[in-house]
Design a protein around this nucleic acid. Structure first.
Lengths: 368, 368
DNA sequence: CTGAAAGCGCTTACAG
DNA sequence: CTGAAAGCGCTTACAG
């Protein structure tokens, strides 16, 4: 064991010294000191160390030797790591995979790299990453862990001041980007009204969190704005029918929900109260609703329109294809990273810049 | 600009020195030299430097000061980075997001961390990451870039010998894990035969790549093994009907394909040649096939069974839910990381251990 | 069993 | 405009 560990070290060493040349090598070849070489190659724009001719000689030498600065050495001198920690429940999560991808893209755009912190593996992972990120000296942290996971967001912010959250973390002073859920519901209601729908239902998993209350408010306010009657019977809250488990402990069963719930939705909203449209909790609910409606001989959208929420892959493959709300993940990612970038450069954001809301859009397909 | 860059450096410094204590701090508090402290805290198991009592004092001091080893300093001394580069076309890619997640999980299990290399952003990204990974001293690289992207896999392997690919990279000496596509097709054919299907069709996007020829072979060999007649009319190759663009230039339109193709599949296989089952190129084809069949009044599975390939999110939400082949991504990820781990510890794998095939499984839902 | 010292590759005051 | 030197935080021969 010690034997093999030793041989690894030796091999690593050899590889490192074999195919990567150092600043000293370059300086020697260029006939200058390593201070000058360093300034020319890795220094900022304010290089007054040498004239352009010397600089060119140095650059030429670097090219010849295939020189690339050693990242660890620069870090040790107090330079930025150009690494961004990305905390997420799980990277493959259907609700967040687009966001993760866009975040990475934006991070690359500002010249940094993403280090994944997959926190669903175990409850202690979140705290572990707080430490690990510190050890590795990340410049900032992006936290896109679902709000229903109870992790130490305050602790994260305390250790990593340059943190930007996706969705309100409920931590004083935290910077975050959130989707405007009220606007989302207003879009959906307006669209359905334009399609001639008068009895628009809302089916959600919970109303006990403020983010979901926002939805209810947007729904109500747009109904009012359009002069449509408000009927509380058209709001379905799954919580009224027993506990709904969507929390996950493993990756596999994470996004399941009791199929019967959709039967209940149709019973209450459509059968009992004559809804002619349903705005669903998310695309998964919407897709199942469409199946349930068909099974009961209800036509979509002729009899009942269905609107989803998320705009994930499956929307094109439901039958009919699903009209849904797009979360504008690309815009959200851009906002998050640019906020973080400003924090890295200039410290804490002034209060009025700490919160940004992204306006979702409506994607019309065939279910409305 | 220089002003602000300076202030950043200063701030970083201050933070670093403020809240992170060093080995010297711990040694001072424990009353030992930093050599001993280092050995106790960061040394391997073969610690014969001091007795257990001294060791405990050191550990106590470390706890008290909240000591954590500085990653950059260890790297600079030739230690492993415990960072693994993960090359992927795009992290949010529906075809690979599960694999990415499992790879990350496995990487964490061996005590390392994942650095994402999202290569779809631009063609030069792949080569860029080869360099960047080297600069950062990754211990190994996992490459899950789709085989239809033409990237310099040989160059990757040359710079990073501890690389494991997903799917055959066509590079001599490369280590890789691949799904056994022949076995996949055999599973599908056997299952359909057991359900009483006699005219089983195969609809694929291309047969010009060896991976897809494998499918054809598995399909044929199982038909033969079961004594079912072989009818070349039941094989649909989209290439016969003009070029099919599935390559992507942007994220948005990546997984689209001409909807008319599915109409052709139904025309040829079902209408013209009486297929009573179709094994589809992937779940997306399968989902669209189901919609197309319904639109033409063909019942699934009563008249025609449909089998997908991938087992991604959408399979539960097609109507009927899709029977499909599962890629066993978790197993593949485990195999890849364990191969890489062995390479990190003991160098190149012997030839017979460089290739591993994962057996896919059949997930039966309602479309068969 | 333990300490003092050199070195990893870079940056940055400090002298010239 | 340029070089020699100290230092970042650790590891590891080398002396005791």
């Amino acid at each position: 064991m010690t034997q093999s560990a030793d041989s690894v070290t030796r091999r690593t060493r050899r590889i490192a010294s074999r195919d990567r040349s150092t600043l000293a090598d370059v300086a020697r070849l260029a006939g200058v000191s390593s201070s000058v070489a360093g300034l020319v190659l890795n220094g900022g724009q304010g290089n007054t160390r040498c004239g352009p001719k010397t600089a060119e000689i140095v650059r030429q030498a670097a090219r010849q030797l295939g020189y690339h600065p050693n990242h660890a050495a620069r870090l040790l001198c107090g330079k930025r790591s150009h690494t961004i920690g990305l905390l997420v429940a799980s990277a493959g999560d259907p609700l967040r995979s687009f966001l993760v991808e866009y975040l990475d893209t934006e991070v690359v755009k500002i010249g940094c790299h993403t280090m994944i912190g997959n926190t669903v593996i175990s409850p202690s992972q979140f705290d572990y990453y707080i430490e690990e990120f510190a050890r590795r000296g990340v410049d900032g942290v992006l936290c896109a862990v679902h709000h229903w996971f109870d992790v130490d967001r305050a602790g994260l912010l305390a250790h990593h001041p340059n943190t930007v959250f996706y969705e309100d973390p409920n931590v004083p002073g935290a910077a975050y980007v959130a989707v405007d859920r009220q606007a989302a519901m207003r879009l959906a209601v307006r669209h359905l009204a334009e399609r001639g729908r008068r009895r628009i239902g809302l089916a959600v998993m919970t109303l006990s969190e403020t983010t979901h209350l926002d939805r209810l408010q947007g729904y109500r306010s747009e109904l009012a704005a359009l002069g449509l009657p408000r009927d509380e019977k058209l709001v379905f809250n799954a919580e009224d029918f027993g506990p709904i488990v969507t929390r996950c402990d493993g990756v596999e069963h994470k996004w399941r929900f009791p199929g019967e719930v959709m039967g209940l939705v149709v019973d209450r909203l459509v059968r009992d109260h004559g809804a002619d449209a349903i705005i669903a909790h998310d695309d998964f609910w919407a897709a199942t609703l469409i199946k349930t409606l068909r099974a009961r001989g209800v036509r979509v959208p002729a009899d009942v329109s269905v609107v989803g929420y998320l705009n994930h892959y499956l929307t094109d493959w439901t039958d009919p294809a699903l009209t849904t709300i797009d979360m504008q993940n690309e815009m959200a990612a851009n906002a998050m990273v640019s906020m973080m970038q400003r924090m890295i450069h200039s410290g804490p954001l002034p209060e009025q810049e700490r919160i940004q809301r992204v306006k979702p859009t409506l994607v019309v397909r065939d279910s409305t």
